[in-house]
Amino acid sequence: MANSTVEERMLDLIEEICDDEVIREERDIDLFEAGLLDSMAAIELLVGIESEFGVVIAPTAVEREEMNSVNKIIHQVEIRTQG
């Protein structure tokens, strides 16, 4: 139950930052390669996650390969909110 809310709120956040609904469907595409995310947007995402969930992810804490798709981003937030 708690997970689905995190997921929903994350989807809203990512959609807002990427400015594209496609992220709800294409949850495993590489967002950087698809041009939906760049380093600026990635920082906004980190700031958004911090203010939304109180979860701090340092810029070098997670390798880009571990955070380049919608599912992977949600996973990174979930493992930190369940702490």
């Binding site: 380093s39 947007a41 920082i43 906004e44 700031v47 810029p59 070098t60």
Partner: peptide, 22 residues
């Protein structure tokens, strides 16, 4: 520089809403 300067500067500017847009 990206990890230790750019990202930090942008993060703090975004959090403090120093500028009106991205």
């Amino acid at each position: 520089l990206r990890d230790f300067v750019f990202m930090r500067v942008v993060k703090s500017a975004t959090r403090r809403k120093l500028f009106k847009d991205r």
